[in-house]
């Protein structure tokens, strides 16, 4: 197994000893400047795997390494996870400007179309698509080295989806971030991961076949 990149090795996880394994022996890696897709139907542990890789959960067995080191236990995590529902990932009592400054100072407000007029508003005063831009702007800063996008545009219309991905892919390419895209829309993953932002080899993994999880599907 390589030591550079974001590497999940032999990951096992379950929510309680009485439950079946949600993540069973999954290994995967995302290199710098690489866009990797992850596809599986609902209930296959996609989001759980994302939380393991971003340090929200700790695996029962296996390890998550970034450039050969474990994830930092405190401070800003170089692996950042963007969720499907932005309204659940922001403090509803904070104004947008405070939400944006939660981690590092954001650098991409203009390019993501985060309007200065939004900064004084509260999260419920923005639409889902607008709030998702805020959630993305919050993590696009120099301290972020790997991005995990868990169905971040599933509930958005095609035009907003294309707008958001255009900006994220440009940033990922410019700053050579590693990007793991989780989704079930084959056309979108194909567009993002094959001949997409990165000139390096891009892959789409299918979680329904754990043993072949590292084999490209397209």
């Amino acid at each position: 197994m390589q030591t550079n990149g974001l590497v999940g090795q032999g990951l096992w996880f379950r929510y309680s000893p009485r439950h079946p394994w949600t993540v069973r022996d999954i290994s995967l890696s995302v290199g710098q400047g690489e866009v990797v897709g992850l596809m599986a139907p609902s209930g296959y542990g996609k989001t759980t795997l994302a939380k393991l890789l971003a340090g929200y959960l700790s695996p029962h067995r296996g390890s998550v390494l970034v450039e050969g080191n474990p994830l930092p236990r405190r401070g800003y995590c170089p692996v950042q996870l963007i969720f499907q529902n932005p309204e659940l990932t922001v403090n509803p009592r904070w104004r947008i400007e405070r939400i944006l400054r939660e981690g590092q100072a954001p650098t991409q407000l203009d390019r993501l179309g985060v309007h200065p007029g939004w900064l004084r508003r509260y999260p419920h005063e923005l639409s889902g698509g607008e709030l998702q831009r805020v959630a993305i702007a919050r993590v696009l800063n120099p301290a972020t080295r790997y991005l995990i996008a868990d169905e971040i545009t599933a509930m958005l219309d095609a035009n907003t989806q294309a707008q958001i991905w255009q900006t994220v892919l440009a940033y990922v390419q410019q700053h050579q971030l590693g990007l793991l895209v989780i989704g079930h829309d084959a056309a979108l993953l194909k567009r993002l991961c094959v001949g997409g932002a990165s000139p390096k080899e891009n892959r789409i993994l299918d979680l329904t076949q754990p043993t072949t999880a590292l084999v490209p599907q397209f």
């Binding site: 639409s127 095609a158 035009n159 907003t160 989806q161 294309a162 707008q163 991905w165 056309a187 567009r191």
Partner: peptide
């Protein structure tokens, strides 16, 4: 037409700007 063009299986090119609030 813009919505159709912006689908990932088509051009994946969005029109700029946002729906008015």
């Amino acid at each position: 037409q813009a919505l159709w063009r912006s689908l990932p299986q088509n051009d994946f090119i969005p029109v700029p700007g946002h729906q008015p609030s």
